[in-house]
Computed example of a mutant assay.
Amino acid sequence: MGAMMNPHDTSFKLAFIGAGNMASALAAGLIGKRCGGSDVLAIDIYPPALESWAQQGVQTTHEPGPALSKQRIWVFAVKPQVMKETVLACKPYLQEDTLVISVAAGIPATALADWLGEPGKPYQRVIRCMPNTPAFIGCGITGLMALEQVDESDKAIAQQLLKSVGEVVWVENDAAIDAVTAVSGSGPAYVFLFIEALIKAGIEQGLSPEQARQLSLATLHGATQLATLSPEEPSVLRERVTSKGGTTAAALTVFNEGGFTPLVQKAVNAAKVRAGELAAEFS
């Protein structure tokens, strides 16, 4: 497997292949803390995407080249439809100790291993991640999975990398990453939809748009913090707010009669099914 990388080395030698929003968020969490700008290589075919990287002292280029072979950690952050061609363009510069980390949605780690390896001999040093957009403000959560032969030091490196933008959860395989995608990867959109609906309902009840927005956002934030910090289950916290025959009970009855929980389960399942379809489509 080549030389093991020590996660406690003073710095990482990183290449970001695809320098868009998620790569930028990861870099912001690392540069100056775990590595210097000069330790990082950013590759993107879109020149404006590289401007902010260059300002941080990062090496930038528009296509894979020999500089890639000096970077021990490759982070693929490109759209799934261009992932295969991007991986194949980078493959000539792969070293035996390169750690490959993918944050591309819908591409199985096993597909990456096949593309990077030789027929009958997949490249095994691959970790797949699914972060979410709150990573942009350091409040993300990322699901990670590693191929079987990835050693603990490489896992520790991936964990440190993703912890720079929030929490991490390790799962067993590509199918579990599809479930992560459905719950937390797509999940912020479900929360934003609920916030939109709550604001609209507040306005309908006579509050100003500003009042409805402030009340809705603070309620979501406060309830989430309470659920995070409380030792009680969310169901217990819900029951504590709900007096028999009271206002909360009246509202929850409507949610339950409308099939709120099964609807959420159905929506999450649809996202997981779509993740599997994308995997088949792009790999």
Rank of each mutant, 00 (worst) to 15 (best):
G2N: 11
A3D: 15
N6E: 15
H8E: 15
F12H: 14
I17E: 01
G18V: 09
N21H: 12
S24C: 08
L26W: 01
I31H: 02
G32A: 06
R34M: 12
G36T: 08
L41H: 03
D44Y: 10
W53M: 14
W53A: 14
Q56H: 15
V58S: 13
V58L: 14
T60H: 01
H62M: 07
E63N: 12
P64N: 09
K70V: 03
I73C: 03
V75E: 10
V78F: 13
P80W: 09
P80G: 05
P80T: 04
E85T: 10
E85V: 05
V87S: 10
V87Q: 06
A89K: 09
C90A: 15
L99Y: 13
I101T: 08
I101V: 15
S102M: 09
V103S: 04
G106H: 12
G106L: 11
D114R: 15
P119Y: 08
P119Q: 05
R128W: 03
C129H: 05
C129P: 07
M130P: 11
P131T: 02
A135D: 06
G140V: 13
I141G: 02
I141L: 10
T142A: 08
G143P: 07
L144T: 06
M145R: 05
L147W: 07
E148K: 09
D154K: 07
K155L: 09
I157Q: 04
I157Y: 00
I157C: 14
S164D: 04
E167Q: 14
V169R: 12
V171T: 00
A175N: 15
I177R: 01
V180H: 01
T181V: 06
A182W: 10
S186W: 08
S186Y: 03
P188L: 04
V191G: 07
F192E: 10
I195W: 00
E196K: 11
I199C: 00
K200F: 00
G202K: 11
E204K: 08
E204G: 02
E210K: 14
E210H: 09
Q211L: 12
L217M: 15
H221N: 09
H221R: 12
G222A: 08
Q225K: 06
Q225P: 00
L226Q: 01
A227G: 02
P234W: 02
V236N: 00
R238S: 03
R240F: 00
G245T: 00
G246Q: 08
T248C: 03
A249L: 07
A251Q: 04
L252S: 01
T253W: 07
V254M: 05
N256L: 04
G258P: 02
T261S: 06
P262C: 11
L263M: 13
Q265W: 04
Q265G: 02
K266F: 02
V268K: 10
A271Q: 03
V273I: 14
R274K: 15
L278F: 15
L278D: 10
E281V: 03
